[in-house]
């Protein structure tokens, strides 16, 4: 077939309808989910600000915090402020912050889909149930894991080491994925309830910054004044950061008698949050999403 380049050339468009007998059988929810996830990854590649969020920014954060605050913040357990100890302390927190922000990425991609009417296009296609949300989830987990890998490499260069056992290390990565999964539902809920990408950005920054900063993300809990300390002690970002530090065998705030249960058992407490958030947010999020796309 030749390409018609001018309107004088007779157009040939092969659009003979496919008969019922020739229809392609459904290829399943995993296939459809992956097709939509790939689109999310291409989106990241094509948007400079998203690409920098996932690559340059995490590297910058590690380097900046490690060298700017490294000498100033004493991590409990040692007498003096040691930059090396702070850098090891920092990694658990910075990874936790990235994972919490997964919710923002999901919410933004869902709001953008509605803005660009991609939702209607998808709904007119024979896609397996749940594949659109599944695709957003998979793409955003990958978007969260990419910076974690880059930060791990950067962290290694500036002196961070995994000192825990293999089982604990697997537990640490399992906790990261579990928490990302929970954040996806928070993101779906937020993206479905807030109509515009701009609104999502506003709410995410108003809510996510306090949650990730009033925590042991960048400074040990003992350095925080009351009442911020009490909030931070029960903040899952704190226990995710501390849980990762514990599992990686990195410096951490030593647990004292009388500390809240959450601080004494960060890994268990974080998993309770993961299960709680998924149990509550997932059904609400699916319902909110269905309502947001229906008309």
């Amino acid at each position: 077939m030749t390409a018609p380049t001018t309107s004088e050339t007779a157009l040939v468009i092969d659009a003979a309808p496919r008969s019922d007998a020739d229809l392609h059988p459904p290829r399943g929810v995993l296939h459809d989910t992956w097709v939509i996830a790939r689109r999310g990854l291409v989106h990241m590649k094509r948007q400079p600000e998203q690409l920098s969020d996932a690559t340059i920014q995490p590297i910058m954060f590690v380097v900046m915090f490690a060298y700017v605050f490294g000498g100033a913040i004493a991590v409990p357990g040692s007498q003096n402020a040691s930059a090396q100890r702070y850098r090891e302390f920092l990694m658990g927190g910075i990874i936790a912050q990235t994972i919490v922000f997964t919710a923002f990425g999901v919410a933004l991609s869902i709001a953008n889909d509605r803005k660009n009417q991609a939702v209607d296009r998808f709904r007119s296609l024979p896609i397996a149930r749940g594949a659109v949300l599944g695709g957003h989830a998979v793409a955003n987990i990958i978007k969260a894991l990419l910076p974690i890998v880059l930060m791990s490499i950067t962290g290694y260069i500036v002196g961070w080491r995994i000192r825990g056992s293999i089982v604990d290390t697997i537990g640490a990565y399992g906790l990261m994925i579990g928490f990302s999964f929970a954040m996806i539902w928070v993101g779906v809920l937020l993206g479905s309830l807030v109509a515009t990408p701009e609104g999502v950005t506003g709410i995410a920054f108003a809510a996510l910054f306090p949650i990730t900063f009033v925590a042991s993300t960048f400074v040990p809990l003992s350095k925080l004044p009351e009442p911020l300390r009490t909030f931070a002690a029960w903040n899952p970002t704190t226990t995710l950061s501390d849980g990762l530090r514990e599992l990686f065998g990195n410096p951490n705030t030593p647990v004292k008698p009388g500390d809240p249960w959450s601080v004494a058992h960060p890994v268990a407490y974080t998993w309770i949050w993961v299960i709680g958030v998924v149990a509550v947010c997932a059904p609400l999020a699916v319902r909110a999403y269905q309502r947001s796309i229906a008309s």
Binding site: P25, H31, V35, R39, H43, N116, D120, S124, L125, I127
Partner: peptide, 29 residues
């Protein structure tokens, strides 16, 4: 069995022409 061209063209603005059509094809199984 249907194709829909909505009023505001709903092609994905961040995908190339080819990527758009491949994605639709794959979602059509």
């Amino acid at each position: 069995r249907i194709g829909l061209a909505a009023q505001d063209a709903t092609v994905d603005p961040l995908l190339t022409g080819h990527e758009n059509l491949v994605m639709i094809g794959e979602l059509h199984q």
